[in-house]
Amino acid sequence: MMAAFLHNRSALVGVVIMLGFLILAALGPWLAPDPLAFVAKPHDPPSWDHWLGTTGQGQDVLAQTIAGTPVTLAVALGVGVSVTAIGALIGTAAAYFGGRTDLVLSLLTNVFLILPGLPLAVVIAVYMPAGPLTIAFVLIVTGWAWNARILRAQALSIRQRDFVMAAIVGGESHLRVIAFEILPNMGSLLVSCLISATIYALGAQVGLEFLGLGDISVVTWGTILYWASNDAALLTGSWWMFVPTGLCVASVGFALVMMNFAVDELTNPRLRAERAWRAALRREGVRFDGSTPVLRKR
């Protein structure tokens, strides 16, 4: 499975970009020991000394971007993992127990799904001490419902299979059936939920910190953008203050999207069958436009 994943072109692109950022995050403290230091005059455009120019407070933008990587990625991944775990727990519990449990859990999921995330996150975050942990907590509270809904639907169909019935009749405990019979059979969906949740967490985290809800003395990609807007990056034409950070956020997001494409291509039987069909057509020298299996004689 892992080998097939890495042979997929989309997956390879995603993994390489993601690894690059993880290495950057790991090396961050050595490459940029003091991102808040005053190094040159404010609003200095990119030059040989400062490749990405300086901020409105005379700090090095490149150093800040590197120094912001570990915290940003840690929050995004941490929230992604937590949100998927909570979603799996609530989704499978609702599907497995059914009846009144399902009714209550599904209702809770749907209510949280429909409440707009950002305003709710703001209302919770302002009453808590500012910092990456608060941001992570708020994102988990406002973001778990989507995964719970998707995973419940999948668990519901697995619940009906014979091997689950057999395990229940065989007297296995509820926890064991959920953890060892149902969850392992949702592997690819769990992976794709984890990836989507991480994308959500990255974007929402940067958004909240841009609003000024993060700890603005900690350097993260979100606070860099907050300071860029606070120090009038647009008015002074200092594009280098916000362009690199946005490209970093988008590159990480793109890498994750690519991995999700790959998971879908590898596990969706319809796409798999289509590849075989396409290869067969190519051997016969027939052009295939991709719509339906119906071919036109020329």
Binding site: V206, A228, A233, F242, G246
Partner: peptide, 27 residues
Amino acid sequence: RDSWWGRTLPPALAFLGAFPYFWLAML
């Protein structure tokens, strides 16, 4: 989905979608 634009458009828009909205707005 086998034409050149059928293959390039989805990843291209996915890339645009990976940017935070407000950053695209700044740019």
